[in-house]
Lab assay of single mutants.
Amino acid sequence: MDTYKLILNGKTLKGETTTEAVDAATAEKVFKHAANEHGVHGHWTYDPETKTFTVTE
């Protein structure tokens, strides 16, 4: 398992979190669910070198 990071750049919610996942696709599902639960919808990017997802509203 690897550690993946999410950076939230929402209009009303900003922050960072991490998750352990077997691959980037699994981490993305976890992060998108969490972002949706917090009402953050926007443009997603992924940097494979740093294993970091970013969502920007």
Results as ranks from 00 to 15, higher is better:
1 M>A: 07
23 D>E: 03
38 H>V: 15
46 Y>W: 03
51 K>V: 02
53 F>K: 00
45 T>G: 06
12 T>V: 11
6 L>A: 03
33 H>F: 10
36 N>A: 14
11 K>C: 14
5 K>I: 12
12 T>C: 15
40 V>E: 02
56 T>I: 07
6 L>K: 01
52 T>N: 02
46 Y>P: 00
26 T>P: 01
32 K>I: 10
49 E>H: 11
10 G>D: 03
57 E>T: 06
56 T>N: 08
20 E>G: 04
37 E>D: 09
45 T>K: 07
26 T>D: 09
7 I>R: 05
51 K>M: 07
18 T>M: 09
57 E>Q: 08
21 A>T: 04
31 F>R: 00
6 L>S: 01
33 H>W: 10
37 E>R: 11
46 Y>N: 00
34 A>C: 15
1 M>H: 09
26 T>F: 07
53 F>Q: 00
24 A>R: 10
7 I>F: 05
25 A>I: 10
28 E>A: 09
3 T>D: 05
6 L>E: 03
44 W>N: 00
21 A>W: 01
22 V>Q: 12
15 G>P: 04
42 G>E: 01
34 A>N: 07
6 L>Y: 02
42 G>S: 02
29 K>T: 09
12 T>A: 09
27 A>S: 01
49 E>D: 13
47 D>W: 05
39 G>Y: 05
9 N>S: 07
48 P>T: 07
43 H>P: 06
11 K>I: 15
46 Y>E: 00
17 T>G: 07
43 H>K: 13
49 E>I: 10
40 V>F: 11
7 I>H: 04
14 K>H: 11
31 F>D: 01
28 E>D: 04
53 F>C: 01
34 A>S: 08
43 H>E: 15
37 E>C: 13
14 K>C: 15
5 K>R: 13
49 E>K: 10
13 L>P: 04
42 G>F: 04
57 E>A: 06
13 L>W: 15
48 P>V: 08
41 H>P: 04
29 K>P: 02
44 W>A: 01
3 T>H: 07
2 D>V: 11
1 M>S: 09
52 T>K: 02
9 N>A: 08
26 T>S: 13
39 G>K: 06
8 L>M: 13
18 T>R: 07
47 D>L: 04
35 A>R: 01
6 L>I: 04
45 T>M: 10
5 K>A: 05
41 H>K: 13
23 D>I: 02
41 H>R: 12
23 D>A: 03
16 E>P: 04
15 G>C: 15
22 V>R: 13
21 A>H: 02
2 D>M: 10
42 G>H: 02
5 K>F: 13
20 E>Y: 12
41 H>W: 11
20 E>Q: 14
23 D>W: 02
15 G>E: 10
19 T>R: 04
40 V>D: 02
2 D>Q: 14
32 K>E: 05
5 K>C: 08
47 D>C: 09
5 K>P: 02
24 A>P: 09
45 T>L: 07
26 T>C: 08
30 V>I: 15
42 G>C: 02
48 P>S: 10
29 K>A: 13
